[in-house]
Amino acid sequence: MHRFKDLEIWKKSRLFCSTIYEITPSFPESEKFGLTNQLRRAAVSIPSNIAEGSSRLSNKDFSRFLQITLGSAYEIETQLLIAFDLKLINDGELNTLLKELNAIVKMTSKFKSTLKV
Protein backbone atom coordinates (compact mmCIF):
# COMPACT_ATOMS: atom_id res chain seq x y z
CA MET A 1 0.00 0.00 0.00
CA HIS A 2 1.05 3.55 -0.68
CA ARG A 3 0.30 6.64 1.37
CA PHE A 4 -1.63 8.69 -1.18
CA LYS A 5 -1.34 11.91 0.82
CA ASP A 6 2.44 11.71 0.39
CA LEU A 7 2.26 11.30 -3.40
CA GLU A 8 3.09 14.44 -5.38
CA ILE A 9 0.69 13.38 -8.15
CA TRP A 10 -2.15 13.29 -5.65
CA LYS A 11 -1.23 16.72 -4.25
CA LYS A 12 -0.87 18.26 -7.72
CA SER A 13 -4.09 16.69 -9.01
CA ARG A 14 -6.00 17.87 -5.96
CA LEU A 15 -4.89 21.45 -6.63
CA PHE A 16 -5.75 21.05 -10.31
CA CYS A 17 -9.24 19.92 -9.32
CA SER A 18 -9.66 23.09 -7.28
CA THR A 19 -8.59 25.14 -10.31
CA ILE A 20 -11.26 23.46 -12.45
CA TYR A 21 -13.85 24.30 -9.79
CA GLU A 22 -12.63 27.93 -9.80
CA ILE A 23 -12.99 28.41 -13.58
CA THR A 24 -16.27 26.61 -14.22
CA PRO A 25 -18.60 29.09 -12.45
CA SER A 26 -17.91 31.48 -15.34
CA PHE A 27 -19.46 28.98 -17.76
CA PRO A 28 -23.06 29.72 -18.81
CA GLU A 29 -25.89 28.36 -16.72
CA SER A 30 -26.89 26.24 -19.73
CA GLU A 31 -23.66 24.26 -19.22
CA LYS A 32 -24.33 23.51 -15.55
CA PHE A 33 -25.34 19.93 -16.32
CA GLY A 34 -23.14 19.66 -19.41
CA LEU A 35 -19.53 20.69 -19.72
CA THR A 36 -19.29 22.12 -16.20
CA ASN A 37 -20.47 18.88 -14.65
CA GLN A 38 -18.29 16.72 -16.91
CA LEU A 39 -15.15 18.75 -16.22
CA ARG A 40 -15.71 18.71 -12.47
CA ARG A 41 -16.44 14.99 -12.34
CA ALA A 42 -13.36 14.12 -14.39
CA ALA A 43 -11.19 16.46 -12.30
CA VAL A 44 -12.42 14.91 -9.05
CA SER A 45 -11.77 11.47 -10.55
CA ILE A 46 -8.02 12.04 -10.83
CA PRO A 47 -7.05 12.42 -7.15
CA SER A 48 -9.88 10.07 -6.15
CA ASN A 49 -8.55 7.22 -8.28
CA ILE A 50 -5.02 7.80 -7.03
CA ALA A 51 -6.30 7.61 -3.47
CA GLU A 52 -8.47 4.56 -4.08
CA GLY A 53 -5.75 2.76 -6.00
CA SER A 54 -3.22 3.38 -3.26
CA SER A 55 -5.35 1.36 -0.86
CA ARG A 56 -5.12 -1.74 -3.02
CA LEU A 57 -2.91 -4.55 -1.85
CA SER A 58 -1.21 -5.17 -5.17
CA ASN A 59 0.70 -2.90 -7.51
CA LYS A 60 -1.26 -4.45 -10.37
CA ASP A 61 -4.51 -3.11 -8.91
CA PHE A 62 -2.93 0.26 -8.17
CA SER A 63 -1.63 0.41 -11.75
CA ARG A 64 -5.17 -0.17 -13.04
CA PHE A 65 -6.43 2.82 -11.03
CA LEU A 66 -3.58 4.94 -12.37
CA GLN A 67 -4.67 3.97 -15.88
CA ILE A 68 -8.18 5.19 -15.06
CA THR A 69 -6.57 8.40 -13.77
CA LEU A 70 -4.87 8.88 -17.13
CA GLY A 71 -8.17 8.31 -18.91
CA SER A 72 -9.78 11.04 -16.82
CA ALA A 73 -6.90 13.39 -17.65
CA TYR A 74 -7.38 12.87 -21.38
CA GLU A 75 -11.11 13.36 -20.92
CA ILE A 76 -10.38 16.73 -19.26
CA GLU A 77 -8.02 17.69 -22.07
CA THR A 78 -10.77 17.11 -24.60
CA GLN A 79 -13.31 19.01 -22.52
CA LEU A 80 -10.95 21.96 -22.09
CA LEU A 81 -10.41 22.11 -25.84
CA ILE A 82 -14.18 22.08 -26.35
CA ALA A 83 -14.56 24.84 -23.73
CA PHE A 84 -11.97 26.85 -25.67
CA ASP A 85 -13.76 26.19 -28.97
CA LEU A 86 -16.97 27.47 -27.37
CA LYS A 87 -15.10 30.54 -26.09
CA LEU A 88 -15.78 29.61 -22.46
CA ILE A 89 -12.07 29.90 -21.64
CA ASN A 90 -9.42 32.00 -23.33
CA ASP A 91 -6.11 30.96 -24.87
CA GLY A 92 -4.11 31.83 -21.74
CA GLU A 93 -6.39 29.82 -19.47
CA LEU A 94 -6.32 26.88 -21.86
CA ASN A 95 -2.54 26.86 -22.07
CA THR A 96 -2.11 27.14 -18.30
CA LEU A 97 -4.60 24.35 -17.62
CA LEU A 98 -3.13 22.06 -20.27
CA LYS A 99 0.37 22.64 -18.91
CA GLU A 100 -0.76 21.68 -15.40
CA LEU A 101 -2.66 18.68 -16.74
CA ASN A 102 0.29 17.54 -18.84
CA ALA A 103 2.51 17.61 -15.75
CA ILE A 104 0.03 15.38 -13.93
CA VAL A 105 -0.10 12.97 -16.89
CA LYS A 106 3.69 12.75 -17.04
CA MET A 107 4.02 12.22 -13.29
CA THR A 108 1.29 9.58 -13.30
CA SER A 109 2.78 7.73 -16.27
CA LYS A 110 6.26 7.80 -14.71
CA PHE A 111 4.96 6.59 -11.36
CA LYS A 112 2.91 3.87 -13.03
CA SER A 113 6.01 2.64 -14.88
CA THR A 114 7.89 2.25 -11.59
CA LEU A 115 5.30 -0.09 -10.08
CA LYS A 116 6.38 -3.69 -10.24
CA VAL A 117 3.31 -5.59 -11.45
Rank of each mutant, 00 (worst) to 15 (best):
M1N: 10
M1E: 12
F4Q: 00
L7N: 05
I9T: 06
K12R: 15
R14H: 14
L15H: 09
F16T: 00
I20G: 01
T24M: 01
P25Y: 07
S26Q: 14
F27D: 02
S30R: 13
S30L: 09
L35V: 02
L35F: 10
L39S: 01
R41G: 02
V44K: 04
S48N: 09
S48G: 13
N49Y: 09
E52M: 11
S54F: 01
R56Y: 07
L57P: 01
L57I: 06
S58Y: 01
D61Q: 13
D61H: 11
D61I: 02
D61A: 14
D61G: 09
S63C: 10
R64L: 13
F65Q: 07
L66Y: 02
L66H: 02
Q67Y: 06
I68D: 03
I68A: 05
A73N: 10
A73E: 06
Y74F: 15
E75S: 13
E77Q: 14
L80F: 04
I82A: 11
I82E: 07
D85P: 01
K87T: 08
L88M: 13
N90P: 11
D91V: 07
D91M: 09
E93W: 06
N95W: 05
L98H: 06
L101F: 11
N102G: 13
N102S: 15
V105I: 14
K106I: 04
K110G: 13
F111C: 11
T114H: 14
L115Y: 06
L115W: 03
L115T: 03
K116T: 11
